[in-house]
Write a protein that binds this DNA or RNA. Structure first.
Lengths: 217, 217
DNA sequence: ACGCAAACTTGCGTGCACGCAATATTTGCT
DNA sequence: AGCAAATATTGCGTGCACGCAAGTTTGCGT
């Protein structure tokens, strides 16, 4: 019920998708991120180069997909899993922090930090949480099926907040400059996420409030 | 004082930049958006194809740049121009609505609506308001020079809200579906922008409140 | 069991983005 | 004015994304 669609076909598709992203990661770790051609990945996964682009629309996408895996759906599930009485803002924040805190292999993160191109692809991949998140938020308030504008904006904003936090985290820790004030960019990812999303809590609260008002008839 | 940097060199750069984007727009209008090769644009602007990519990093970018022009800086200026006592949320919202309402030629917008690739490029271009916006917001509250995390998140969220509004506006007006509820996607751009940004007003209010508290010593 | 239709893969061709190194132009300085 | 450093332009070469039109596999109804 998670994937829908028929059986054997989809199975094979997922298989090649996994094969591709694992091959991509393995080669990137072995040869360095810039010394991996998409032909190599395709060959290592046993498909044609053209097929690679039927699965991933850029060279970097497969590599970060291997690290990111199915984070999007797990975040949405984590939001849905929180008890209905916790604040929406807290549910979202903690679900995100939880999914970004899990003990990821550090080799892979170093790999991503290495190449600017990979960093960008990583940030782009994080944007994939937007739609699942919108669905989860929509379900928590009203669940109107058709996600209202406010819901979409909130999901997009949370996604943007996550991006900002990740940017600060990946920042090459540019030290204090001539501006005088120290910018304190570095920090632990959970802290960065929490303080980024804190700025959006009032908006989430307001939406929740409004949904509760219109539900009690 | 707007651009800094020395004189004649920068002048020529801006000239070719304008030449490129105007050539791009003209050719796109004449031949249709998909029948314009970057070599054509470069030739029409009197530079080498390689130089084109020193100015624009994608084929579509020059076309949308011709329509978008300097909207980013104008939005930032419009935010700064509002009197200091209007709510931050209102200042931002109205500045954005104002800049997106100006009587743009409709031929150009039809052009963008035509090709999916151009639509994407247009949405990407809208994201360029994020940094100017962050600067403007930062100036309005505290003006700490080093934009705080909250400021960056708010600017990113507003940008995301604008993107959602533009998406709804550009939507091919998919009519009501089997879901039963009509989604009412279409509408005037100002309305869409206002209702999208309304969802973020509480967050902007909260940030403003907090800035005022810490400023009164 | 058979066969058709839908979905997936593949090769090919085209246009594109961009690193690199050579060349040309502008700038600031004396 | 003249020169050296900084900065822009250009051609070239490589790898990549993707539309298209075969060929191949899978699913499903009868």
């Amino acid at each position: 019920m998670t994937t829908r669609r028929t059986g054997l076909r989809e199975q094979k598709k997922q298989a090649t998708r996994v094969a591709l992203r694992e091959a991509a990661l393995r080669l990137a770790l072995r040869n360095g991120p810039d010394n991996v051609r998409v032909d190599d990945i395709a060959e290592a996964a046993g498909v044609s180069p053209r097929t690679y682009n039927n699965y991933f629309s850029s060279r970097e996408q497969a590599i970060v997909a291997a690290v990111t895996a199915e984070r999007e759906s797990r975040i949405a599930a984590a939001v849905a899993a929180r008890p209905a009485r916790v604040r929406l803002a807290d549910a979202v924040t903690e679900a995100i922090v939880e999914q970004y805190t899990e003990p990821r292999d550090h080799d892979e993160l170093l790999l991503i930090t290495a190449s600017p191109t990979l960093r960008d692809a990583f940030l782009d991949a994080a944007a994939a949480i937007e739609h699942p998140l919108a669905a989860a938020i929509d379900q928590r308030l009203g669940d109107t099926g058709a996600p209202a504008t406010a819901t979409r904006v909130l999901a997009a904003s949370v996604t943007a907040g996550v991006r900002v936090a990740l940017q600060q985290w990946l920042q090459p820790s540019a030290a204090s400059l001539t501006t005088g004030g120290l910018v304190v960019p570095a920090g632990s990812l959970p802290d960065l996420l929490r303080s980024a999303l804190a700025a959006l809590a009032p908006a989430l609260d307001a939406a929740e409030e409004q949904a509760q008002q219109s539900s009690r008839h």
